[in-house]
Computed example of a mutant assay.
Amino acid sequence: MKKITTSDISNYLGISRNTVSKALNNHPDISDETKQKIIDQAIKMGYKNIKLPPAVLPETDTSRTKSIAFITKRDVGIETFWMNVMSGVEELISGNRYEMKLSFIKNEDIDSLLIPQILTSGIDGFIVAGSVNKTYNEKLMSVSLPKVFIDIHSDFSFSELNSDIVMMESEGSIYQITRRLIQEGHRDIGFIGDLSIRSYMERWLGFIRAHYETGLMINPDYCITSNDPRNYQYYEDVAERLGALKQFPSAFVCANDVTAIIVIRYFRNAGMSIPSDIAVSGFDSIKEIEFLDFSLTTVINDEFRLGLRAAEQLLTRMREPNRLPEIIRLPTKVLFGESTTRPAPAKL
C-alpha cells in the first residue's frame, strides 16, 4: 500500500501542504477547528506521524479497546483472495486505532440462523465478507451495529437494502471476455458458476449480454450453474458435473479462477489441451494461477483495495449512522491470456 503523505492529505482536503504540516505539528497559527479537520482526515487515510497532545485528538473511550469484527465463512476464509481482503481491512482500521477480530461462520450456524457470538461482545462494527444465504444475510443485517457487506446474496434487491455493500465490477468484465471469444470464432460457449452470489450473478448477466448483442443463442446444456455458494470450488464437484455433459463447448467462462483451475485440471486429466481443444477463462487473478504453465485469461481486481474500501466505508458509517445505504463498486480490468488466445476450429 502507498505510504500516505501530507501532500495526499492536502490534495484531498484542498488545503495547502504547509497548513496540513502545521496542523499535524500543533502549530499555534492554525485554528483548533482546522486542526481537528486535518487530524480526522489524516487518521482516516492512515497517516502514521501525528504528533499532537491528546486534547487535540478525536475523543476515544479508554475503558476498552476499540474493535471491528471481520466475519467470513469457514470454507472461504483461508483463500488467498480473502486473506488479501483482510489485510486491506486491517491496514486501515489499525491506522485508526481499532483492532480487527476475525470470526468464522460455520455452515451449521447458517442453517440454525445463529449469529456469531462476537457480535454480542461489545465490538464497534463489523464487516461480512462473502455471500451466505439470503435468510442469514437478513439476520446479520438486523444486528443493530454499523456494518458493511462485501458482496451479497443475489436475491437481494438493491432498493431494499439497509446496509452498505462494497463489490468489484463484474458484468462488464465477463461481457468483454465472452464477446472476445465470440469474435474469435467460438459459437458454443459454456458458463460455470454459482448464481447465489450477487457478483457471480452479474458475471452470468455479462455472459448473457454478450450473446444477446451478437445474436448468438446460449446452449443451456453447456452451462453449469447452481444456487449453492458451496458448489464449484472443489474438484470432485466440478468433475462430476463436467462428466455428465454429453458433449463439450469450445470454451468455458468460469465465475472465478478457482473454478477455472479445476476445469483446466479436469480436461488435462482427460488428455485435452488448453486452449487448443478448449478455451478457459477465470476471474480474480489469484496467486495460484502463477503455477499454470500458460497465462490464464482472467479479471484483475485489487482485493487489498476492496478490504481497504470496506473498512473506510464502515468507519464512515460509524461516524454517520443515519446516512443512506450505499452500493460501492470498484473497477476491474480484463487480462487476456494464452488460455483463450486461439480461435475455435471452424465447424464443417
Rank of each mutant, 00 (worst) to 15 (best):
L140V: 13
F158D: 14
K139A: 15
V148W: 07
L140F: 07
S154R: 04
K139F: 06
P146I: 08
E138N: 15
S131C: 08
S154Q: 09
G130D: 09
E160M: 09
L161D: 01
H153C: 15
V128L: 15
Y136C: 12
F149S: 05
V148Q: 12
S159H: 09
V128T: 09
G130A: 08
V148K: 03
K139D: 03
L145F: 04
N162E: 14
T135I: 07
I150W: 02
V132Y: 00
H153A: 15
S157D: 14
S131H: 04
H153L: 05
N137P: 03
S163F: 15
V143K: 01
L140E: 06
K147M: 13
N162I: 10
L145E: 10
L140K: 01
A129T: 10
V132T: 14
S142E: 14
S154E: 12
S163M: 10
M141W: 00
S144G: 00
V132R: 03
I150Q: 02
E160D: 15
S131K: 06
I152D: 01
M141E: 12
L161P: 03
L140Q: 06
M141S: 14
V148C: 11
S142Q: 11
D151I: 08
S163C: 15
S144A: 14
H153G: 12
S144P: 05
T135A: 14
S159F: 04
L161W: 00
Y136V: 14
F156T: 04
